[in-house]
Design a protein around this nucleic acid. Structure first.
Lengths: 226, 226
DNA sequence: CCGCGATCGGCAACAACCTGCCAAGGCCGT
DNA sequence: ACGGCCTTGGCAGGTTGTTGCCGATCGCGG
C-alpha cells in the first residue's frame, strides 16, 4: 500500500503514505529528534485526530519542550468555534507553541527541522494520503513559502481580539443563514441593525475564506458549524 | 438503551429506539407481514443503509411482491445524483415500488399498513433515534398527511424528464458555485448565457429546497455534492 | 467633565442576483 | 415545408447583498 518513488540520487526521496496511522508510524522518530517543527492546517482535526496526536505527543512529551521551536499557522475559522479556540490556547500554553492566523488559502503542511516536508492530499474519499518529502530543494522551497506565510500571518491573540464579539453570535448568524432567512428578518430577530448584521456576515465569510455566500455555506457545513 | 413510553391504554404505544440496527430488529417482522408500505425520505442513505436495507429486503424478498403496495416519496435532490437516480429506477423495477417526488419539506417517515408509523429524529450527533408509533389516532393523522403529500407529489418519471438536462451540468455548476465564482464568469466557462446559467442555479436551488445560496451551499455539502 | 477609541446603524451607491417577457432558433411529427 | 413545442439568452426592472461614509452613542481613563 505504501508507494515509494525514488528520485535522482541526492539522498532525497518522496514517499506517499495513506492514512494517518501509517504517517505517524513512519515519522514519529523524526518528531522525537526535531528541534524545529512548523505546521499549517485549516482546522484542528487534521493533525490532532486521536491517533496522530497521541503518537506525536508521545514522541514529544519526553522532551524538555523549551528546546523545540513549534510554529503553527491556522486559518481564521478555528477561532469561530469556542472549543477549538480554547484547545488552541491550551497547546500554546502546555507546550511553547507559537500560533498565528492567516487569511490565505494554505494546504496542510508540516516541516521538520527544515529537512523534511509532509504535505497532505485531498481529504475526499476515504483515507487521506500524505507525501513525505526529503528532497532538499523541494523542502527548501516549501520552507521559504511557509516562512513567508508565517511572517504575513498575525498572532492568535491579535486576531482573537478582533473577532471576539463575532464568536458570540456566529452560531446564531449561521443558523439564520442556514435557514435561508433574509438579512432584513435575520437582523430583526437578533435585534441588530441590518448594517451590523451584514458586517457580521462579512466577517464570517472572511473567516471562512469564502467569496460568495454559497461558498460560505459549503465551508460552514464542512466545519460542522451548521 | 431502549426507552418505551406507555400511553393511555388503548392498545397503542410510542417506542423510541436509537440506531438503525435496533430499529430493524424491532420492526422486521412488521415488514414481513405488511401489504402497504409508505415511505418518505430526503435522500437514499436513510432507509437504505446496508443494515436497514438488508434487513428489510430479507423480510420482503420471500414475498410475492405483487401483493404489497410500496410507495416512496423523495425530495428532488435524489435526482441530482446520477447514481441515486439509477438506484431509484432499480428499486422501482425489481420491486413494484411507486416513486414520487415532492418539493415540500418532509421529515423521514415510514407507514406500515396504516397501523404503524416510524418517524426519524434529527440525524445530528451520533446514532439517529426513531419513534415507533402504534397509537391509532396518531398513525391515522400521519397517514392522512402522507396521503396529502403523496397526491400533490409528481411521479418520478415526470420530474426526471424535467431535470434531465440539469443533472448533466449540475456537478459543474456546483463546482463553480463552490469556488465562489461570479455568475458572469461561471456562465462564460460553461459556454452559457448568464440568463441560462442563473436558470440552472435556480433549478438547483429548488431541487435542494434552498431559498438562499448560503442554504444551497449547506445542503449541497450535506449531500456530498461538492 | 473631557477626550479618545470603538461600535453601532442609517444612508447611499454599487454589485450581484433573481425573474418575467419575448424573439430567435432547434427539434419533431405531420 | 409547416406548425407546435421547447430551450436559449438578451433585456429590463426588481430584490438582495456589499461597502464606504459618517454622525450618534457608549465605556473608559485622564
Amino acid at each position: 500500500m505504501t508507494n515509494t518513488v525514488g528520485t535522482i540520487r541526492t539522498g532525497g526521496t518522496v514517499a506517499v503514505v495513506r492514512g494517518e496511522e501509517e504517517l505517524v508510524r513512519r515519522t514519529s522518530h523524526q518528531f522525537a529528534a526535531a528541534t524545529d517543527i512548523a505546521c499549517a492546517a485549516i482546522d484542528l482535526r487534521t493533525w490532532s485526530a486521536a491517533r496522530t496526536e497521541s503518537g506525536i505527543r508521545a514522541a514529544l512529551c519526553g522532551r524538555d519542550g523549551a528546546e523545540v521551536r513549534l510554529r503553527k499557522v491556522y486559518r481564521p475559522n478555528v477561532l469561530l468555534d469556542p472549543v477549538s479556540a480554547a484547545h488552541l490556547r491550551e497547546i500554546r500554553d502546555t507546550r511553547g507553541a507559537q500560533i498565528r492566523i492567516t487569511p490565505d488559502e494554505i494546504n496542510e503542511t508540516i516541516l521538520i527541522d527544515r529537512r523534511i516536508a509532509i504535505l497532505a492530499g485531498d481529504p475526499r474519499l476515504g483515507e487521506r494520503s500524505f507525501s513525505i518529502v526529503t528532497q532538499p530543494e523541494v523542502v527548501q522551497g516549501v520552507t521559504s513559502l511557509f516562512d513567508a506565510a508565517w511572517r504575513s500571518a498575525t498572532t492568535v491573540d491579535a486576531y482573537d481580539a478582533r473577532i471576539a464579539e463575532l464568536r458570540d453570535i456566529a452560531p446564531q448568524v449561521l443558523d439564520l443563514l442556514g435557514r435561508g432567512v433574509k438579512d432584513e428578518a435575520a437582523a430583526r430577530t437578533l435585534g441588530l441593525g441590518v448594517r451590523t448584521y451584514r458586517r457580521r456576515v462579512a466577517e464570517l465569510m472572511e473567516a471562512l475564506g469564502a467569496s460568495s455566500r454559497f461558498q460560505a455555506g459549503v465551508r460552514a457545513r464542512e466545519l460542522g458549524l451548521v
